[in-house]
Design a protein around this nucleic acid. Sequence first.
DNA 1: AAGACGAAAGTGGTTGA
DNA 2: TCAACAACTTTCGTCTT
Length: 245
Amino acid sequence: MRYTVHDKGLSTVIDWRDRDTSGRKLSPSRRSEIYRLRKWQIRSRVHGSVDRNLAQAMSELERLASQLSIPKSIRELAALLYRKSIIKKLVRGRSIEAMVAATLYAACRIRQKPRPLDEVADASRVDKKKLGQCYRLLLRSLKIKIPLSNPIDYIPRFASELSLSSPVQLRTVEILKRSREKGLTIGRDPLGLAAAAIYVASILLDERRTQREIAEVARVTEVTVRNRYKEIVRVLQIDSLNSFG
DNA sequence: AAGACGAAAGTGGTTGA
DNA sequence: TCAACAACTTTCGTCTT
């Protein structure tokens, strides 16, 4: 029986020819035994590769999630999504890390505890673009529909990172609700809205933070903060922030 | 000096022919 | 499949606190 290195030395397979090492034909009984062996070996190779992939993926998931302080229940959801994506062969040609990051990002959004895409990308070794692509692929092929994230879901984390009091948080949430009623949120990046609302609330309650500080934790630019907050004070008629009454 | 402002050009994703 | 489009980013010169 001849063993041949088949896939970068990671495993060996039984040769497909019905001959032994010296090139002689095999006896029928020997031949059927070879068939059984071959079938078993192929199956174990497939399963083994899935197992190895999963093992690597789960350890990466654990690392990523703990770095981002993501609770266990969300990790488990991410793990479930990853297993589904393996079954659907979504990891083919893509990096395990990218798919892991995508499933974790998706799991956070499903549980209404979204993290900025940039934050997840930074914590993994995946660039934002690839992560976004994997995420969209995940939604498409798993047929799951995840609504646009709600800006309010970002507020507790952002406020905490900026050391803002809970009255500021409450005012921020109120601003966001009123903005939605006025249709201000349509087509807008939830992160930009969250940042702008925090900016306005922080000024109103005299706990001012700079646009720069807020933009940084929300992972948007100061320009976006400016554009959103200008719209908010105009539509909600928050005159104390306006130059003219 | 630092923060805020806004114009202009560039990027990546979505949409509709 | 591709071109137009909207939202956001980058960059930068200027004004305000």
